[in-house]
Design a protein around this nucleic acid. Structure first.
Lengths: 233, 233
DNA sequence: GTCTATAGTGAGATAGAC
DNA sequence: GTCTATCTCACTATAGAC
């Protein structure tokens, strides 16, 4: 579709910089503080738009300090991504064969919606990275994430074979669930605009969750027929 | 949640630059060509990561030429956004009271999926802009888009009142549909990774469309009860 | 470990010849 | 209208004093 662009993040290749080999407790805390400050900056400006200056100001530190701990902007960015990657996998734990499909899927959706409420910035950083080609996390996506999805797809296929759920395309079902839940974090501004809100409230998210759970359960044929009215011409 | 950041796009405020008052046909063609080149660059690098240099190379023109036509990088970016904004509204035309809900929603989903296939870069540019706070298009979102959504929400509420569709939250339904369809454009890399593909093919998108249409129709109670198996304990 | 001062580079934008 | 050469500045990154 599109000819490849030269990678955005490839200014000057530099060998692994200063960081210590044995991270002390104090060091970890400092790093944590910097990552905390970096998250909103990368989330709202993207990698290219973020500046070490802006991150340093947020962290209340001089710029040079960030370089002392992370070496380069890219390394800081990578560390931030790494810290959050597995965040999205936790919800998968609900999807197990022995559990009732409706309960499992409802819990999955609720967990993902909770994440959108509690960690919207992490979601935005991740979204940015994927939109821009997942240069840093491509490996993760095609190994750990794919394996986890394959595993959970098998669970859903098992439910379908047992007649416990409508025969959905489980992989695409996950794409739909990810998109539908993360949109409340990534595209919150658009949701706000349409709902005529200044900020999304917990009540807004609760309503969104109720909508989504009901929608998904019906979509998977997990709601009693009573709620399935006959189709009108 | 997060304190506001200084806008990413606010380096040096400059008065409206050179562009002519009466755009000739030739001028419009040149502008078109530049916008065409700008789309993949902004899509894959974001505003901050995109460079006028990269766009110029894609367009086969010297940098100065872009500045002659658009003045600033921001103006070029704005022009690109403006060109694509109404793209997403077309599909709404299917949602009219007199049409059968199932047909209308299926057609809506199919149109949006077609857009994800045909104009993925436009979708990415838009997604970037929204994630980064919709600084440029916030006005559009809270006026034209909101009005359009309100109008179509009324149609769906009308169907629900007439018992033609399950009582869904129409606004959140649209958020779900937007997210579920645009994810195939915006997050194509992730979808590829999970599906173990190098690129998404038309067949992949067709399969995704079939999944989504079926899922949405069931989710809206628009599929005959036969396909709604009883819930198992 | 911390921070000030600065080096060095790339980017947006412009001047001015053609 | 077009393009080369250049200006200016912001940004990443580092040197080196404390």
């Amino acid at each position: 579709m599109t000819a490849p662009l030269p990678s955005v993040r490839a200014k000057r290749a530099r060998p692994a910089p200063r960081p210590a080999a044995f991270p002390s407790r104090a060091r970890r805390l400092k790093e944590q503080r910097i990552l905390e400050a970096a998250e909103p900056v990368f989330a709202e400006a993207g990698f290219g738009g973020a500046s070490m200056q802006a991150i340093a100001e947020r962290a209340g530190l001089p710029k040079a300090n960030l370089h002392y701990y992370f070496g380069t902007k890219q390394a800081l960015y990578r560390a931030l991504l790494a810290r959050n990657l597995d965040l999205w996998l936790d919800a998968f734990d609900h999807i197990v064969p022995e559990r009732d499909p409706a309960d499992a899927l409802a819990a999955y959706v609720r967990d993902k919606m909770r994440a959108s409420w509690e960690r919207p910035l992490a979601s935005k950083v991740f979204a940015n990275e994927v939109i821009h080609g997942a240069v840093e996390i491509g490996g993760y996506l095609s190994t750990k994430l794919r394996q986890k999805v394959d595993e959970k797809v098998a669970v859903i296929d098992g439910w379908a074979a047992a007649g416990k759920i409508a025969p959905v395309d489980a992989r695409h079902l996950f794409f739909t669930l990810w998109a539908a839940t993360q949109t409340y974090a990534d595209f919150d501004v658009q949701v706000c605009a349409v709902l005529d809100r200044r900020h999304l409230t917990k009540a807004d998210l609760a309503r969104a969750t109720d909508h989504l759970v009901a929608f998904v359960l019906r979509g998977c044929g997990l709601t009693p027929p009573a709620a399935c009215p006959p189709r009108t011409a």
